[in-house]
């Protein structure tokens, strides 16, 4: 039994937690931005997938890793813009648009991958981001290998949280985004274009989702596989609710979730003979549902979420 407790006292467990959390953090914050502006973005799963593909392919075709991130950012923004045109400007169903975007982004990604690499039996690999040691801190016992020997992409993800926190709480744009999701009429009354604010939020949020996908192919792994997103986008949507639409809580939620995931992988190695591996793999999905039920009591959706804004119409 003691082995199950010892897991959490290994640096490897904490390092894995951070690694698993990063794509979730980026995607969850991306979704927070969209939903705070009043737009549910179910395109997340597909946008992460095409972000993973485009980021990886850019590097595979000879660009450097940072250009890969930039490429993912741009493709995510493009799909975000498409989502915004449909849901913000035309007021189409956010649910169906999102599912449509997920279908389009992932199938387009697969199509292009197959087009560029038609006959790849074993997925080709790139040299992903390497861990860099933060001077002094990385030499600390336990804490060093757990928290200060990560790849630059990981530190970038943490910076994104800080940026999002600052954006939402200390800038006029952040305030406008929150108003667009709570009371768009009031925002319009101040002479601010609700459509534009919502579009900026959805484009920015979708770009972050795609970067979250690219983390998988550029930092956590070194290849692109079909279905590698494997529900991470949907888990991020559950985390948004769990985090009450706040970026800093999204960070905590993603870390907690990733910690449980990292734990189950290690527990699986210990108990693998007793419990079939499929049950361990189910845990993240079941936990997400449980998290939503726990959060349900205090859940307060942004008031204008799902409601299209139409100029000159009263709600």
């Amino acid at each position: 039994m003691i082995e199950f407790i010892e897991i959490i006292f290994t640096a490897g467990f904490w390092a894995a937690t951070i690694r698993i959390a990063c794509p979730l953090i980026l995607a969850t914050i991306g979704e927070v931005l969209c939903e705070r502006a009043g737009v549910l973005n179910l395109g997340i799963e597909g946008i992460m997938s095409i972000g993973a593909m485009v980021g990886w392919m850019t590097v595979f075709l000879g660009a450097d890793l940072y250009t890969g991130i930039l490429a993912a950012l741009i493709i995510g923004g493009i799909f975000g813009l498409l989502h915004a045109i449909f849901t913000v400007y035309l007021g189409a169903s956010q649910h169906v648009t999102g599912i449509g975007i997920t279908m389009l982004a992932s199938s387009l990604g697969f199509f292009c991958f197959k087009l560029i690499l038609p006959a790849s039996t074993t997925p080709p690999k790139i040299k992903p981001f390497q861990p860099i040691d933060i001077p002094f801190l990385s030499e600390l016992p336990f804490l060093g290998p757990a928290f200060f020997q990560h790849t630059p992409f990981t530190y970038l993800a943490i910076l994104v949280v800080i940026f999002a926190f600052w954006l939402m709480n200390s800038t006029p744009l952040g305030l406008s985004i929150k108003m667009a999701g709570e009371n768009p009429m009031a925002l319009e009354a101040q002479g601010i274009d609700v459509f534009l604010v919502r579009t900026i939020a959805v484009v920015l949020g979708s770009a972050l989702m795609a970067v979250g996908g690219a983390y998988l192919t550029l930092s956590a792994f070194d290849a692109f596989y079909f279905g590698m997103i494997n529900g991470r986008g949907w888990i991020a949507i559950a985390l948004v609710i769990f985090a009450s639409w706040k970026p800093e809580r999204a960070l905590l939620g993603a870390l907690l979730f990733a910690g449980l995931d990292a734990y189950q992988v290690r527990a699986q190695q210990l108990a693998g003979a007793l419990i079939p591996y499929q049950f361990f793999l189910m845990l993240p999905f079941l936990l997400s549902i449980v998290a939503m039920v726990i959060a349900a009591k205090r859940t307060r959706y942004p008031k204008a979420l799902l409601i299209p804004f139409r100029r000159g119409e009263r709600h």
Partner: peptide, 20 residues
């Protein structure tokens, strides 16, 4: 009973069933 959003729960359960 608890207003838990069905979009997310139905999506998540797909993965659980396939693993089952």
């Amino acid at each position: 009973y608890y207003k838990v959003d069905e979009v997310v729960t139905t999506l998540l359960l797909n993965f659980v069933v396939v693993l089952l």
